[in-house]
Design a protein around this nucleic acid. Sequence first.
DNA 1: AAGTTGGAAGTTTTT
DNA 2: CTTCCAACTT
Length: 794
Amino acid sequence: MDPNSPDSENHDLLERLTPSQVEAVQHRDGPLLILAGPGSGKTRVVTHRIAFLLRQGVPAWQILALTFTNKAAEEMNLRLARLAPGESVWTGTFHRFCARMLRRHARLVGLEENFSIYDTSDSRKVLRAAIDDTDISLSHVTVDQIANEISNAKNNLVTSNQFVSRAGQTLGGVVEVAYPVYQKRMLQANAVDFDDLLLHLATMLRENPELRKAMDDRYRYIIVDEYQDTNFSQYAIVRALSRDHPNLAVTGDPDQSIYGWRGANLRNILDFEHDFPQVRVVRLEQNYRSTSNILRVADQLIAYNTQRKPKQLLTDNPPGNPVRLVRYPSSRDEAEHIVAQIADDIAHDRRRPRDFALFYRINSLSRALENAFRNAGVPYQIIKGLEFYQRKEIKDVLAYLHLINNPKSDMSLLRIINVPPRRIGKATIKRLDEYAQRYGVSLLDAAREAKTIKTLRKPAVVALHGFVEMFDALSPLATAPLHELMEQLLAESGYRNWLEESELEEDAERLANVEELLTDASEFDTQSPDDAPLEAFLEQAALVSDTDEWEVETNKVSLMTLHAAKGLEFPCVFIVAVEQGMLPHERSKEDPDQLEEERRLLFVGITRAEEELQISNAAYRFMRGNQEMAIPSPFLMELPREEMEVFEPKSSPHIDETWDDHTDDDDTYVQDIVDDDPEELGFDDPLMDEAIQHDIEQQQMTRPAAASVMTADQLLNNALDGDSEADERGAIPPEDFVEGMIVNDPERGLGRIVKLSGKEKKRTATVQFFTSPRLRHYVLAYSSLVPVQSADDT
DNA sequence: AAGTTGGAAGTTTTT
DNA sequence: CTTCCAACTT
């Protein structure tokens, strides 16, 4: 319906737009507030407006478009490329923009240009270390609570110097102590957390009027998408850049504000008219996305929120099918029936996999759904599985890169100084840290001075020296192509070898992931001929999110949280587990504001659907390894039930008349019911008994014979036997080993003893195995090493 | 120093 | 049911 060919779009930007859309597109100078309901063509308006500005002669570099996610920015870029080919307008997330500005003016806030961006888990570790520096007791508050409070403070532009606790607040008192220590550690490491990116830029703009003016001048036209989700520091930044040239256009929908927990301040949008009195307000209330049935359900639900400007959702779309409300007997039924429904539609060519999306409140709900999809063989993608950049091996390699880029990054050093194992243990690190703290140097510099650290033992000094040498060999490659740097790194550090040598299945997988990162690096090399590729790569890795991984093109069913669903649309949507404690979530129920946010979350989910929508819950949900009774969400009572189709399949849905479009034979769901209880479903097939008999025989054949009939006494005896055996095995007297002797290790094979040290129980052998260049150390009194051939025999 | 085993704890949403 | 950490073993 929308050809979007470059020519037709360029011919007249205002063609095929409604009057209010035209009003927003044509608005040129002065503040503009676009209140856009779901599916009202908001992105279309924004991109057309940018194209319009460009057409009017505004240079591309004077326009700044800030989005909430990288994906939204990408999409905007894509559409802009069609509307205004050859022009490049900077589009990106707030965090990316801040990082960019901060690189340029890092010194103004006490950072260096090569600062590192720590993710949540890294900054959490720094906080823990900071707390250890103080005498804070964690008996009444958790690290997470403290972190949250610091984050809140930063989002409200309260710096570590300014934070003052109100009298009598336990948490506040703790934060007052921990916040400055944490911030000092971050600065020492030349690192920032996500909140710092915003806080530092806002501070910088406030304290440097000249710079603020210059940037205000540079970015004449600013567009902010999803303005309802901005927090105070983001607001301050945008405001600071729109004083001399208040050409600020924001789009948003207060009803879709779902990031209050992250400091998003609804007042930013509700008070926009107050902050910018000259503002032009454009309302986009016509919905082009959903059927009127879907829209009515959304409309009725959101009307229950009290903190809102009343607004009607309008559409000329046909009513479509009724919205389905389903209560399943169990979460398993829910998953399997939904998948069966989808499989059926695909099998009959009514839909493609990519037409479907499943939304849930919390990530852990994805597992059950995933299993159902896998069993049915329906292709699916999860937005956020175990995210790539959170995996240990990826974080390890990135830590090496971080340290090369920013040698002060102690967090990175701690992560990799003994990975792969270099015989640098807890004790050594503790002494190193003491030295570093005392002299105010980085851990790397402390390691450099290992010789002068009195508390360190010789082997530790040698090991540390080796690490520093390795690092110094790598660091000249900091400006080399990424791929080259990483290849060297993996070789020099021994990381690749370490994984290759391991026999663990897990490590083979890790190696594959590392290779994938290497591929990313090569791609990055060819795509962005940046003058600082390392820094750019690390920044990208830090600021990617899970929704960014979503593949629009592939033909798969999408599974995601309700939060991740924002900004997307699908022909068929299933929202699952709409139950008390899940949605609204347990932790939102006391606070009425949070409860309203939960309602908005469901609203966002509902309004993603174009044609079909099913909302479901289950009577029993499998959580934490056991069945738990679930109560339907109170939100369901707020929906216009008389206009919906309400199903409550009792025990086996295929008996229920309402499920007649699912025949027994193509339905994995029914198959499982059969497994559970064949009799109840009326199976009187005489072959059944035989089949069961056969199954039992099969099981008996594959089962180890005696294991199941062992008595407790026998088990105990077995355990004792095992112990004594081990004692005897280790009883080869340590004196029997000599240097040069060939030995066998049951796991690693043959090797030669190159060195012996220590006495009696502490006598250790250094063994060079034939299969690997690495030396291994054995405490002979406990080892499973067996002499194969004495040195004399050779 | 490194690996292994056991127990305890914890699971909202994300840049 | 996992996943993470602490104590224990080798």
